[in-house]
């Protein structure tokens, strides 16, 4: 297994030809190349711009939007977007870190309509809000459920 490359400098130099690297050279705040997977971190203000940029670069298929809760460290939430390029046969992972007390990010439904359900799931299970989402309601849990089960401070057995 090759050692992971971390940091914008190292990754962008080693993968200068990568379409996603070229598209995000302005927007990236951090980057990682680990186990054959490219991760580019952007700030939350730029997520729509970043999605548009990679889509222009040929990454046309949004596979997944999900989150990781790094509680108790801050910024707490990592929102992860997996985007596939069918033409280039490769994928890129966009990551955004959000603070726990201000877990809001722009919705990318206007870029990819398929983000609708994915973002609702993240809202339901993590409590991250997506501004501009057309219908931000719970999707898995009952409407009157208290709390967000996939947060790390939510017990596995639930509250009883």
């Amino acid at each position: 297994m090759d050692a992971a490359l971390t940091g914008i400098g190292a990754v962008f130099e080693a993968h200068a030809d990568n379409a996603a690297v070229k598209a995000l050279s302005e927007l990236a705040t951090d980057a990682k190349f680990d186990r054959g997977e490219l991760t580019i971190t952007v700030s939350r203000e730029n997520i729509i711009a970043a999605c548009e940029a990679v889509r222009q670069a040929g990454y046309t298929f949004l596979e997944d939007v999900t989150a990781v809760d790094w509680y108790p460290s801050e910024p707490r939430f990592q929102i992860t977007y997996h985007i596939l390029s069918m033409a280039l046969k490769t994928r890129v992972r966009l990551a955004v870190r959000l603070n726990g007390d201000d877990a809001v990010i722009d919705s990318i439904v206007d870029v990819w309509p398929s983000a609708n359900f994915y973002e609702r799931e993240v809202f339901d299970l993590f409590g991250v809000r997506f501004s501009g989402h057309p219908n931000l309601r719970r999707i898995m849990m009952p409407e009157d459920w208290q709390g967000h089960p996939l947060r790390k401070d939510y017990p596995v057995e639930g509250y009883r």
Partner: peptide, 10 residues
């Protein structure tokens, strides 16, 4: 133990 990291396998 599994080394730290993240992987997406489709």
């Amino acid at each position: 133990g599994v080394p730290a990291g993240e992987v997406y396998q489709a």
